[in-house]
Amino acid sequence: MSKDFLATVMIWLTALLISGFFLYLLTDMLIHGLDRLSWAYLLDAPLDAGRSGGIAPIVTATAILVLIAIIVAAPLGLATAVLLTEFTRQKSHFGRFVERSLDVLASVPSIIFGLFGNAFFCLFLGLGFSLLSGGLTLACMALPILIRSAVEGLRSAPDEYRLAAAALGMTRGAALLHLLLPTAAPALAAGLMLGIGRAGAETAALIFTSGYVDRMPESWFDSGRALSVHIYDLAMNVPGGDASAHAAALVLVLLLFTINSIAMGLTRRWQRGRIHSL
């Protein structure tokens, strides 16, 4: 048997293994999750530490956390990306300093973000265990993802647009607003998607920033339990919570998938709209 043949077999087997694992994971989640999943599960409050009842307050808290994270991180990230691509030369010290520190930020483990969020937002800024603390911690985590994809998007916008716009006497700001950002829109949306995905999937950074409380949050200063924290809690601390955890896991995965699809659909429409209207 030749090496070439052996390699071919091994590589196909690996691909098969990965796909097989994916399908196994997916069907496993569906089979166990669909048991408990119902409208009531989505709309009710959890009872008996989550063993029964639903996850309405938890989904709400998750949404608020992600929303805070994106509202804070998206403008900051976009501004940073624009500065890096449009207003600094790639060799400048400031630009390199910013890029380097973002590279480091991107690789900081989520539990470290949890420690930092606890020390900085909860205690130092006095926000306590709250959705705001959790959301801001998530914003720090999502920031490098948003910036990286926005930078990639803007760098891939053709230089001719910048030159042609300048040759027409347009400001850099105008070229950015009307030409470069719309061109980079798919990349921006993809980054936003990834950022939402990262924020929505996060657990470790939230345990000691937004807390465990599973009541319906009334303001962003309330503590709230994210869906991922709920799954963790049910699986580890609540005997007999597996069925609920399975359903919650399915909801989380489906939710992440849906958010991504919506984001993509919105960008497509936005881009089409930009062509005609001012």
């Binding site: 716009a165 040759a167 027409l168 006497g169 105008a174 009307h178 030409l179 719309p182």
Partner: peptide, 25 residues
Amino acid sequence: GMIFQKPVPFPLSVRRNIELPLREH
């Protein structure tokens, strides 16, 4: 004004291509 080697129409409609710089000025 400047014209480039490769035509650089902006990714906008024909009308908006001309309108945009006018509005900017």
